[in-house]
Design a protein around this nucleic acid. Sequence first.
DNA 1: TACATACAC
DNA 2: CATGGTGTATGTA
Length: 571
Amino acid sequence: MMLANDQDEEGLGSTAYNAEAGRVDVRFADSISLKTTALVIAASDKAGMKGAPRDRINEIIARESKGSLFMQRAHHLAEKDGEKIQSLLQRLNEKDDQSDNWRVSMCEDTIDPQLERYRSQRKKVSTRVVVDLDSFFISCHILDNPELDESPCCVGGPKMISTSNYKARRYGVRAAMPGFIGQVLVKELSGGSECLTFVKSDFKLYHSKSAEVKAILQEYDKTLKMCSLDEAYMDIESYLDAYFSITEGDRDHAAITKRMSNSDDDRPPLQEMASILEIKEVTKNLLHSIRKRVHRETGLTCSAGTASNFMIAKIASDMNKPNGQVFVGPSEEEIRTFLSPLSVRKVCGVGRILEKFLRATLGVVTVADLYAKRAEVNFLFKPATAQFLLRVSIGYSEDSRRESEGGERGDDESAQRKGMSGERTFQPTDTWSDLCVKLESIATRLAKDIQSKGLKPRTIGLKVKLANFNLLTRTNTRQVALFQQAGDGSTQTLVDIAVKLLRDVKRAFVEEHKDKAGFMVRLLGVRCSNFRLERETQPSILQFQKNACDVQLDQLEPGHPLETSAGLSST
DNA sequence: TACATACAC
DNA sequence: CATGGTGTATGTA
């Protein structure tokens, strides 16, 4: 009840989160009919959809999606989920038959001690902040073109929407929705008086606006991490340290930042310099002024969440969106009060499927439910998932801080990347030569990126999406990495491997479907991964030549030239 | 290592 | 006209 929530004066604050009201986010929990096995539940939940006519929106979406290959596959997958759920339920029943007090002993013996350990490791102050720019992409365009915002608009096209403004959201138009459905929603729900405007995406623009915001936020935390173009994860502890170590009259931003950079000298911990209440008040005001500054200097509004860890801060940042902020105190009670009524879906990492499984097998909808069923959760789910869910149930995340182990020298911008890929969707085709041409273009473009980053991948992967949206992948890892030196023919090798993998996939497919289910492809992708580490020792010349030779004998059929056209003519 | 899934934005 | 692209993590074999 002491949550410090507020919304800026200029905020669009019609329905801010209200802790007192204990509003719960379980809206569509029961609204999903088993028939619709709704996958595309679009109308609900998300910020900006508050006053939306949910039923009509879902109706229109269902109607417009009906019978599409996409939805057919969605239904098929939903059936498989149903089977999985049945088998989980059965496992649970068997467990109950064997023993009737396993829950109690599991809680006492393993779960609760573990949770207690987590609780004892909690940070004692709320200094973790997630800042999230409001409808970032479309807002960037609106800056240059304010009249856009007078009617529903979005970034994207008839095939896919990536962000919409709040006028559009009121009609149920949201990210990841096909644009043509968005258009129908707007036209129908506005009685034909409005029309959805599509704006082409402009990533140069987004990158530059994102950098502006980052530069501002960095003044409050030099080590902040931009998790995406529109999301910053930061820790304002040092800033607050400096703030409280300065005598009251002299506290201004310049003095604080100077103080911050000057000294790592040991100050007493934050908790000893000020009371929890005082810290909360200062933090609230600080976030307020940071957001105001972002708005003044970039024209963009953002929302912020502050808590003792990022898991909670992230949820909080979404609570009063747009243009609002939420502070969650560090005490057990404040955390429990905040999280208990929330849908588990609010937690970053709990997606559509996990939510469905939790509800269908255990009746778990809220975080409080999750805690109540922690024994069942621990029994039913795989180790990593179970551990994760248990942590979620008490709102704990480690947030190790200092995870940017990148390079010991300088903040290497290329922090430990695991893979790099390129993919493209197109009009489905089964023409082999067309597929090869597309694949070559994807692979050569990827090769450029790989080279410019100086990466040396050992594993090459191919991704194929069929016309019915089924996904197939193939990988090939080799002894020696590609792109070890300029001009070593790696680009061509990459293309060759990709084509070979495609041939393999097609062969396997026609094998499996002896009937003539055409190999109709709607997307091709290439992925490079398993990068050779920078300091790894170089293989000897001898070994290199041996392996290089293997590559060619292995990958290419005899008599074919070392070119893509090798792939064009076969199969 | 190979492949399939889930998830975030 | 008809559902994206990039990257990470996990489980299973």
